[in-house]
Amino acid sequence: MKLLDILTRDTILTDLQAKDKPAVLEELLAPLSQTSAPSKEALMQVLMERERLGSTGIGDGIAIPHGKLDNLEDIFLIFGKSRRGVSFDAMDNRPVHLFFVILTPAAETGLHLKILARISRLLREPSVKNRLRQASSPEMVLEAIAPMDEDF
């Protein structure tokens, strides 16, 4: 499986408007309203519970909010970009511009960790980060990821 097997044009948001952590998480979850995902409230709860354990803002303008749910049947990967940046309690105290949200079924712990590790490796590549920061369409996001996308 590759990241582009689960990241789709429908789950890519290149112009986030939210200004704080709860609002950006809600905005990022909006594409799932037309899917088989649990309610937005249930998804928000799992993401906010994870944030209370420690911010998923890893620094350098990046956050990877993630969670596992018992009643989730599919794996969801959402990408979002904020031009102005969002205060997200990141490790470096800087605003976050790039978001990858990972939601997996609770029984898929191994897969959840593999996706998290794959995104982390991808974002260590400066050229990918730069292309994602400049992306203004879902196609540009997919094109930025594709050359480095490998099976996990």
Rank of each mutant, 00 (worst) to 15 (best):
E27W: 06
L132Q: 01
R9C: 00
K129C: 14
A42S: 10
S82W: 11
L132P: 00
L28P: 06
L7Q: 05
I58Q: 03
L28F: 07
G80I: 09
I145S: 04
K81W: 00
D60A: 14
L142A: 00
P31I: 07
L25I: 12
A42L: 06
S55P: 05
L122A: 05
D15C: 09
L16M: 12
R9M: 01
Q34S: 13
P22C: 04
K40M: 13
M91G: 03
R131K: 14
A144R: 06
T109M: 13
D92I: 07
R133D: 01
L16I: 10
G57T: 08
G57Y: 07
R9K: 10
S55E: 11
R124A: 11
T56N: 13
A18S: 15
H112W: 11
A23P: 01
S87G: 07
K21F: 11
R50G: 08
L77V: 15
A23F: 08
H112R: 03
L122Y: 04
L7S: 01
S87H: 10
F100H: 04
T11H: 14
K40A: 15
A117E: 06
T8I: 08
V24L: 04
F76I: 11
K114I: 04
H97A: 01
L53W: 13
G110M: 03
R84T: 15
F79G: 05
M48T: 07
I62M: 07
L69A: 08
N93M: 00
D74E: 15
G80D: 12
A135V: 02
K129L: 08
L53S: 13
D92M: 02
S36M: 10
N71H: 13
V128N: 10
P138L: 10
L7D: 04
S82Y: 07
L113G: 06
R84G: 07
S137M: 03
V24H: 08
E26P: 04
F88Q: 08
Q45T: 12
V96N: 11
I62L: 13
R131L: 15
D60H: 15
G54Q: 12
